[in-house]
Nucleic acid binder design. Sequence first.
DNA 1: TCTGGGGTCCTAGGACCC
DNA 2: TCTGGGGTCCTAGGACCC
Length: 424
Amino acid sequence: MKETFFALVDGNNFYASCERVFNPKLNGTPIVVLSNNDGCVIARSNEAKALGIPMGAPAFEWEQVFIKNRVHVFSANFTLYGDMSNRVMTLLGTYTPEMEIYSIDEAFLKFSGYERYFDLSQYCQNMKQAVTQSTGIPLSVGVAPSKALAKIANKIAKKFPEQTKGCHVIDSEEKRLKALKWQKVEDVWGIGRQHAKRLNAIGVKTAYEFTQVSDAWVKKHMSIVGLRLKQDLSGQAVLDLEDIKLKKNIATTRSFEAMYARIEELKERISTFAVSCAEKLRRQQSCCTALLVFLRTNPFREDLPQYSASTVVDLPFPSNSAIELSHYACIALEKIFRKGYLYKKAGVMVLDFMPEDQIQLNIFEQSDPRHVPLMQAIDKLNKIYGQQKIRLASQDLKRIWKMKQEKLSPKYTTRLADVVVVKA
DNA sequence: TCTGGGGTCCTAGGACCC
DNA sequence: TCTGGGGTCCTAGGACCC
């Protein structure tokens, strides 16, 4: 008999593990990785979790805990994490032709029509060990007849490392029910805070109890999405691997390291965000026909006057030129900027895409054709010399140094000067 | 002093059309 | 009291993910 299984593979405490790969002294020690501007905790090693440091913990509030417990603190090094992710994903891809990269540290693998006598559990165990050995990243694997169940199997693998050796397979009705009864409903993939609250209110505490709720209730309160989840958990695989899709929206937004009062400072930031959006658009060969700019004050500073605004501007023609997007983003900014506030965060979002090669020629107004070779040259140079080396005049050349990144680890894998030197 | 940065999908309701 | 009955398209907002 042939069967189909899904595996969810992910890196354990991925960012923290990436930092460890090149610094083995960190093994067994608490590690946290901070967000941009060293604002809050976005990743923790098991040892840091054991200290009770929560996800999203503001770094300044936890500083004493870090010091007291000798927590190793890192500024996020996304270049390194992205490169490590590519290595892991490339290797995983050699174990099955059907794979979906779900996030920087997670992939769904599909094993279609495999024969019953084939030992999938052993196969996944071997895969896990081989990939960890090559990359240094510890993995967990959950295998089950559907994606939602594979997610739960993965949690079991993480929760019971001794029994599972980091790989758990749900391949019988008995195991499925046991897993569902073990899984708290609020931790089910696809059930967030709001839905969990509603479900708790009607007495549903576990994933198993969720699968016993009527379709009508689920549909009414959780839409078709919830219904599909219920079916998937029931063992009827309705969620399949998803193809790589072009993005429908692209955003670049940041909090600032300080608060800005002047429109000139905001213009520089907005211009840089627009340039970054244009670059991401060109990478997927799309043009946008509208963009959104937002800005806001610091909501945590209740003692200061608050203001938050956004506006959408339609472009007169589709574009992915950094110069043009920057121009229209600044126009949008002028529309919403108000004097007398201290701004803490802003962003640019590009909207309504169309493929680069399907642009209708508009006789009266079109993207400046001279920008095309210019942007190609910029992309090339940025690729060679590193991002953001080529900038528009409206961008501040010194700006890159302003972001607070006090605890940045070296770009071990992508920057020649930072490559680890092995002493032999 | 200091609190992240991205994305997706679905639904309801209004605008508009015949 | 009572106000047609469909369609379609668009948008805002709400939910979710990592």
